[in-house]
């Protein structure tokens, strides 16, 4: 699966969510988006579930960042 990455650290809300949504709109089924975020984007999850996206979120304690991987259902 091809990977695309997006760093939204330091952006004022709602810009992180807007950037993520904009990349998702162009993401192909064989692609995965890796987002680096200061916080866990809890409000994004129901949107992902509603539109058939799968995700995995991990917290990197040392860096103090969240890594959220998003891909299309079916993989």
């Amino acid at each position: 699966m091809k990977k695309r990455s997006l760093d939204v650290r330091g952006l004022e809300a709602p810009q992180p969510l807007e950037r993520i949504l904009e990349v998702l709109a162009t993401l192909q089924v064989d692609e995965q988006l890796d987002v680096t975020h200061w916080r866990e984007p809890l409000l994004l999850y129901p949107v992902l579930a509603e539109h058939g996206w799968k995700y995995r979120a991990e917290y990197d304690e040392r860096a103090g960042t969240w890594l959220i991987s998003i891909w299309k259902d079916g993989h």
């Binding site: 709602p14 807007e18 949504l21 904009e22 709109a25």
Partner: peptide, 9 residues
């Protein structure tokens, strides 16, 4: 959010 999601998606 609720206006933007259907547009972007």
């Amino acid at each position: 959010l609720n206006l933007r999601v259907p547009v972007v998606m």
